[in-house]
Simulated scan of single mutants.
Amino acid sequence: YFVPAFVGLGAPYWKPEARGMITGLTRGTNRCHIVRATLEAMCYQIYDVLRAMEEDAGAIGSIKADGGAASNDFLMEFQADILGHSVIRPYNVESTATGAAYLAGLGCGLWGSMEELVGVSDKFREFIPSMSESKRSDLISGWKKAVGAAIRE
């Protein structure tokens, strides 16, 4: 596990004294393992925040993802598996740039209204959780132990 607490841990832990760490290293560990642990850490952090949100607001259905990292199929599938929710990614993951282009098009008269943009970019890929509940539980338990160690350091 990789706990990226370079400046402490934010939500939902709020532990500025936590320090980043990598657990489970062996002689056989190579850069591929570290890259994978880093991608997985992103998913675990989102899991932590999503669970905190669900405690406050109730169950959440599917999750929508965008941005550069969302183009990684492994990341999106692992996210779906860890969350136990489907993750929906638009084919165009750069929604900020797309939104700016749509606004520019509206501004210069290319489109007459926001209603004309409905359905312009509705293609997507959905990642469905396929991990067993016991494996998910084991992985999340390992993450919690790693976070606990980073906080105690």
Rank of each mutant, 00 (worst) to 15 (best):
K135H: 03
V93D: 10
Y102V: 12
S134E: 15
R89W: 04
Q79A: 09
L25M: 15
A100V: 02
D81E: 02
W14F: 15
A100C: 06
R152Y: 08
R19Q: 15
G112S: 14
N72V: 01
A146N: 09
M21H: 01
A104H: 04
T29A: 07
R36W: 05
K145D: 00
A149Y: 10
R152D: 10
G24W: 10
A150I: 01
A65S: 10
A104N: 06
T26Y: 07
Y91R: 12
A5L: 13
N72M: 02
E153V: 12
Y102T: 07
L117Y: 04
Y91F: 10
S71T: 09
P4H: 08
Y1H: 06
V35G: 03
N92W: 05
F124S: 11
Y1N: 06
M53S: 12
G84S: 04
A69S: 11
A11D: 14
A37C: 03
G84F: 03
L25W: 11
S62P: 08
P16Q: 11
D138C: 05
A52K: 13
A59Q: 14
I22L: 14
R27F: 05
D48I: 01
F2T: 12
D138T: 08
S137E: 15
V7E: 11
E54P: 05
G67F: 06
A146M: 08
S141C: 05
K15F: 13
E54Q: 10
T23Y: 13
P12V: 01
T23C: 15
V3T: 07
P90F: 09
G84H: 03
R27K: 02
E94P: 13
I82Y: 01
I128V: 11
L75C: 06
K145C: 00
E55C: 07
I22M: 13
V120K: 03
K144W: 00
G119C: 04
K144V: 04
Y91D: 08
C32W: 13
K135M: 04
D122W: 08
M53R: 14
R51P: 06
R27P: 01
A11E: 14
K145A: 00
R51V: 10
W14P: 10
K15D: 15
I128S: 04
A97R: 02
L110E: 15
A37S: 10
R136D: 13
R51Q: 15
W143A: 00
F2L: 15
W111G: 08
K123L: 06
A69D: 08
P90T: 09
R51M: 14
E40F: 07
D66R: 05
P90K: 10
P12G: 02
I151M: 04
G105V: 00
